[in-house]
Simulated scan of single mutants.
Amino acid sequence: MNAHSRQRLVDLQPAQQAGILCNDPQFQQYAAIRCGFPKQQFNASAAAQYLRECCQIDSRTLLNTCPAAYSKLAALRTDFDAWAGKIATPR
């Protein structure tokens, strides 16, 4: 691999992870469902608002410096990954 190879999501700063997540159409659908809109799809902006509310932050950049917010992001990612079938559902 060279220096320009794609990085793994977990190797990126939390704010970058959140930005990528909010641009994922599957996460946008997940966010819409969690907000009570099961037949709709959010756009990236609405998904970002959902993520900020879940993490109780005003800006995704706070994910890089606030351990409590990062912990909420990690839990949200785990729930999303389970919903998407990427991992087994946590018990």
Results as ranks from 00 to 15, higher is better:
39 K>F: 12
37 F>G: 09
84 A>V: 06
70 Y>T: 14
42 F>D: 12
87 I>D: 02
49 Q>A: 13
15 A>M: 02
2 N>R: 05
3 A>H: 09
37 F>Q: 15
51 L>G: 04
72 K>D: 11
59 S>E: 09
71 S>F: 01
1 M>C: 06
1 M>G: 13
82 A>C: 05
68 A>G: 03
78 T>C: 12
3 A>M: 08
86 K>A: 13
22 C>P: 03
71 S>P: 04
9 L>A: 07
76 L>N: 08
25 P>R: 06
33 I>M: 07
68 A>R: 15
15 A>I: 00
68 A>S: 12
28 Q>S: 06
53 E>A: 13
8 R>T: 04
24 D>P: 03
42 F>K: 13
86 K>P: 01
30 Y>F: 15
29 Q>G: 13
2 N>S: 04
26 Q>G: 06
16 Q>W: 00
19 G>T: 09
48 A>H: 00
36 G>A: 06
59 S>G: 02
87 I>G: 04
11 D>T: 01
2 N>Q: 05
25 P>Y: 05
58 D>W: 00
61 T>S: 13
19 G>M: 04
25 P>N: 08
65 T>A: 11
65 T>S: 14
72 K>W: 01
26 Q>F: 05
54 C>A: 15
66 C>Q: 14
25 P>E: 05
71 S>M: 07
15 A>H: 05
76 L>M: 13
89 T>D: 07
16 Q>G: 02
1 M>D: 04
78 T>I: 07
26 Q>L: 11
8 R>K: 09
42 F>R: 10
23 N>C: 12
2 N>V: 01
91 R>E: 11
47 A>E: 08
89 T>S: 07
46 A>L: 15
38 P>N: 12
47 A>G: 10
23 N>H: 13
